[in-house]
Design a protein around this nucleic acid. Structure first.
Length: 217
DNA sequence: TGCCAGGCCCTCTTTAGGGCCTT
């Protein structure tokens, strides 16, 4: 992957896991992965697969996701699916909604097969909290409705949530560029924005613009 | 449904507590 693609915030893999619970450290496992590859702001590829974690899921997860134990019994095992998904990632930068959650499961599942994550995550939730300060809350579904983003009405399935997160990510890029009159914002800048105090976002972009102008001169 | 975890973030804070998010 070239340096320019590593910098490009509109060329990323946006991913979402469905899991048996909240923490891989407590023995929870992934049960579905969904992801889209954005290149230059357009979805150019998709990855979706159920995976058999080798354990039964509880009724809450069945109800929450619509994924049943019967569906998982017929699915390929996690190690097989994750090996395919590692190839799909191809060293792209990564985006997820509440990325700390998906990062934990990605690292855990890749670690089980002796693979590792090559690139960093950016979090659409942390950035939305800074940019969409008037949203009722910053759940993915709420933000999709708030910004009237494209959705097929399916929630809590991996590919559907990954696609909605991708549209949210593109919406954030557009709105940041419009609001702060920027011609571009890089992936590392988006990661820095996610760690910027909410009260210092305007100053962050003031410094960003000054830096760009100084760089241009 | 809400607990399990954990990072973020706010405030009646920082020697803490609790809500927000993810499944």
């Amino acid at each position: 992957m070239t340096d320019s693609r590593q910098q490009d915030a509109s060329t990323v893999v946006v991913l979402d896991f469905e899991t048996t619970g909240l923490s891989p450290d407590q023995g929870e496992r992934a049960i579905e992965i969904g992801a889209v590859l954005l290149e230059g702001g357009r979805i150019v590829d998709r990855f979706q697969s159920l995976m058999n974690p080798g354990m039964r899921i509880n009724s809450f997860i069945e109800h929450y996701t619509g994924i049943s134990n019967a569906m998982l019994r017929k699915a390929a095992p996690c190690d097989e699916v994750m090996a395919q998904f590692a190839d799909f990632l191809q060293g792209h930068n990564l985006v997820a909604h509440n990325a700390s959650f998906d990062q934990k499961f990605l690292d855990s599942e890749l670690g089980r097969i002796g693979r590792y994550r090559q690139r960093e995550f950016a979090c659409s939730m942390l950035i939305a909290r800074r940019i969409y300060t008037n949203a009722p809350n910053h759940k993915l579904g709420t933000l999709v409705e708030y910004k009237r983003l494209q959705t097929d009405g399916v929630f809590h399935r991996a590919l559907a949530d990954a696609e909605m997160t991708a549209h949210l990510w593109l919406s954030l890029l557009r709105d940041i560029q419009d609001r702060y009159q920027l011609t571009e914002i890089s992936f590392p800048d988006m990661r820095r924005l996610a760690r910027t105090p909410k009260t210092a976002v305007d100053q962050f972009f003031d410094r960003h613009r000054r830096g760009r102008k100084a760089h241009a001169v």
